[in-house]
C-alpha cells in the first residue's frame, strides 16, 4: 500500500483540501507521499513536510506548472503514479479538475468524493445529491480518488517528511492561463470556517444580503448562500453551499431565509449545530435544524447582530 497525494496550493500555501487527503491516506495505511507540482515550491514543500503522516514530499518545478492547470499537472502525476496503489486529491475544484484526467491517463476509473474508506478497494460516496450513499469497489490496480473535506479532518502538523526533487517531464499543452479574479475577503474560508452564516432567496436582494454579512462579521463567520440566492444574483457562485456548490460542516451553521431544498441540505447537513431563521414555519429547513426561529429575517438579523 502506497499513496500519492497531489497537493493543492496557490503558489504560497498548501490548501486545506490536501490536509484532508492526508488523513484519508493514513486510513488506508502504508506510505504517504505528497506530490508538489508548481513553478517554485520550496516554501510550500516545507509546509507539506511538516504535515503529520507524510513520509516524503516530491517536488516537480517547472514554469508551466505555475497555475497548476490539469493539462500539465496530470501528466506529471501519471509519470509518478506507477509506484503507487492509490492517488488521492481533495474534492475541491482543483481535485475535481485534475483527478479524472490523471485516472484516464493511467487507464483506470476514478472514485469521486469519498466520505469513508471501508478498505483499500472499497469506499463510500454520496450519490443523487447526497440522498443515497453508495458503497463501491474498485477493481483497478491503481485507485485514483477525491475525498470530501467534511468527512476527513485536516491532518495536524508535527511531521518531518523528507523533501526530494522528483524527475518528471512537463509536456507542452495548447492551453494558456489568462487571468484570475480572486474573491478578496477577510472572512474565513467557507469550507474550513467554524461558523457559517448562509442566506437564501428569502433575504430578498443583493442589498439586503449586507445583513447576512453583518451577522457573519460579528460572529467571525464565513458567508454562504443557497443556489436560489446565487441564481437570483445576490452573491457570486463560489459562495454556494450545496450539492452543486461547496460542502461545509462547521460547528455552527445559520441558515437565513433558506427553505431547505434537498440540494442545499446535501451541502450542510453534517454541521454540528444548525440554526434556521425563516418566516415560513413549514419550511423543510426546520426539519433538520437544532434551533428554529420563525419570523422576519429583516428584523431578526439586526437584533441578533446587536445582541451576540
Amino acid at each position: 500500500m502506497k499513496t500519492l497525494i497531489i497537493a493543492e496550493h496557490d503558489g504560497q500555501n498548501l490548501k486545506g483540501a490536501t490536509l484532508s487527503a492526508v488523513t484519508a491516506a493514513t486510513k488506508l495505511g502504508g506510505a504517504v507521499d505528497v506530490l508538489l507540482a508548481g513553478a517554485s515550491v520550496a516554501g510550500i514543500a516545507t509546509q507539506a513536510a511538516a504535515v503529520s503522516g507524510v513520509d516524503r514530499v516530491l517536488t516537480v518545478e517547472d514554469a508551466a506548472l505555475e497555475h497548476t492547470l490539469a493539462e500539465f499537472v496530470a501528466p506529471v502525476a501519471q509519470q509518478l503514479a506507477g509506484d503507487y496503489t492509490h492517488v488521492i486529491l481533495g474534492a475541491s475544484t482543483f481535485g475535481k479538475d485534475i483527478a479524472p484526467r490523471v485516472a484516464a491517463l493511467c487507464g483506470v476509473n476514478q472514485i469521486s468524493e469519498v466520505i469513508e474508506v471501508v478498505d483499500a478497494d472499497t469506499f463510500k460516496r454520496p450519490i443523487y445529491a447526497g440522498n443515497a450513499i453508495a458503497t463501491v469497489k474498485s477493481n483497478d490496480s491503481l485507485k485514483v480518488m477525491t475525498v470530501r473535506g467534511t468527512a476527513f479532518a485536516a491532518a495536524d502538523t508535527g511531521g518531518s517528511a523528507a523533501i526530494e526533487a522528483a524527475s518528471a517531464t512537463v509536456p507542452a499543452a495548447k492551453v494558456r492561463f489568462v487571468g484570475a479574479e480572486v474573491s478578496e475577503s477577510d472572512r474565513p474560508e467557507l469550507e474550513s470556517a467554524g461558523i457559517v452564516v448562509s442566506g437564501g432567496r428569502g433575504v430578498g436582494s443583493k442589498e439586503d444580503f449586507a445583513k447576512v454579512f453583518e451577522l457573519a462579521d460579528k460572529l467571525g463567520a464565513a458567508v454562504g448562500a443557497s443556489r436560489a440566492a446565487v441564481d437570483s444574483g445576490f452573491v457570486p457562485n463560489d459562495m454556494q453551499v450545496g450539492q452543486t456548490g461547496k460542502m461545509v460542516a462547521p460547528k455552527l451553521y445559520i441558515a437565513v431565509g433558506i427553505s431547505g431544498a434537498i440540494q442545499h441540505l446535501a451541502g450542510m447537513k453534517d454541521s454540528a449545530t444548525i440554526v434556521a431563521i425563516n418566516k415560513d414555519e413549514e419550511a423543510p429547513i426546520f426539519n433538520i435544524a437544532d434551533y428554529g426561529l420563525v419570523g422576519d429575517l429583516h428584523d431578526i438579523l439586526p437584533e441578533l447582530v446587536s445582541k451576540v
Binding site: T122, V136, K269, E281, F286, D290, G292, L293
Partner: peptide
C-alpha cells in the same frame, strides 16, 4: 471495463429536527 462495482446503496442517516425558539 466495468472496473467499478456497486456493492450497495443505503439511505443516509436522517438528521432529526430540534426545537423552535420564540425569540432572538
Amino acid at each position: 471495463t466495468n472496473s467499478i462495482e456497486l456493492l450497495s446503496v443505503e439511505t443516509p442517516a436522517e438528521r432529526s429536527g430540534g426545537i423552535k425558539v420564540d425569540s432572538v
